[in-house]
Design a protein around this nucleic acid. Structure first.
Lengths: 161, 161
DNA sequence: CACAATTTAGTTGTGCACAACTAAATGGCT
DNA sequence: AGCCATTTAGTTGTGCACAACTAAATTGTG
């Protein structure tokens, strides 16, 4: 198996895999890191900021809808939203019509926080040196990658079954 | 930039921020997800796989060097490496020359796992539909983003001090 | 109507990321 | 030599991600 072409190219792929895995992993953590610093002033973590962004944009939503928007399940969202509630930014209210559903509502304080959050993208964007076109292109590529990966996960899971 | 700069453009940036934040966050988790499925056979998590990739490529390393390669600190690596040890894939040995340092060594079993891991990149890569050039380009962009973000985090941290 | 299947949140347990801290060994400096 | 700063791992605590599970309400079907 030493000098055979299959083994060599498989090893090359392993090296490439290390590179791309690492790049994405590092980028994600770097992103998280810079937001952590900027969001510290607002008292938000990065995932909490994502939730607030959705609420600011779309108004009050049930946990279910939040999870769909952000692709997060209740195991992640339930405690996160509770922490937002503890911070006084949202209220959780059982829907009267469907008692299974919990509506997440911005409080005055939560809505007001948006004003301060308007600063955030400027502080990030300005410093990264990426212009709008580049951001858009990167985003398009990442979304394409995500779709492909989701499909691949489906495929891989099917193989295992 | 539009003619009316302040409120409208800040809100626009907030919306863009939501989009790019979400795209990267989602891509990272999708990546994690597809690897989770594929790595299940090997009994590895994604970060554990990253550590093993470095060890396969570069041989035994102290925890310090692993952390530098992967930009992970001891708070993450110490328990992770312990779990790899518990799985029989590595041994941890205090260096005789410098008793502060802990050398992470592949066991026979750990080295042997590489053979099975050679399958992994093919299973991922084939399914994503990205060719080598695209992977390279994406990687270059992500690395540039990471550098910029690291610099931005430095900058932001300096502002706060 | 009765009851099984589905939907919606929440809980529990495992692992990762990171900040803040501790402990021990080392190296440098006077 | 003596001491202090640095280096290297490890520990503790908080929060996120996700799998597997539970509980309760709702919906669909015979």
């Amino acid at each position: 198996m030493t000098a055979s072409p299959t083994a060599a190219s498989a090893a090359d792929w392993l090296r490439l895999d290390r590179q791309i895995c690492f790049s994405l992993h590092a980028a994600s953590r770097a992103f998280n890191g810079v937001y952590r610093v900027v969001l510290k002033d607002l008292g938000l973590t990065y995932p909490q900021y994502l939730v607030m962004l959705v609420l600011w944009e779309q108004g009050d939503l049930p946990v279910k809808a939040l999870g769909e928007q952000l692709r997060l399940d209740s195991g992640t969202l339930s405690p996160l939203v509770k922490r937002l509630e503890a911070a006084g930014l949202v209220r959780r209210e059982r829907s009267a019509r469907d008692e299974r559903s919990v509506q997440v509502r911005l409080t005055e304080q939560g809505a007001a926080l948006r004003e301060r959050a308007l600063e955030v993208p400027r502080r990030i964007g300005a410093a990264t040196g990426f212009d709008l076109a580049e951001i858009g292109e990167l985003r398009e590529r990442l979304d394409r990658l995500t779709s492909a990966l989701d499909a691949a996960a489906e495929e891989a899971a099917r193989e295992t079954r």
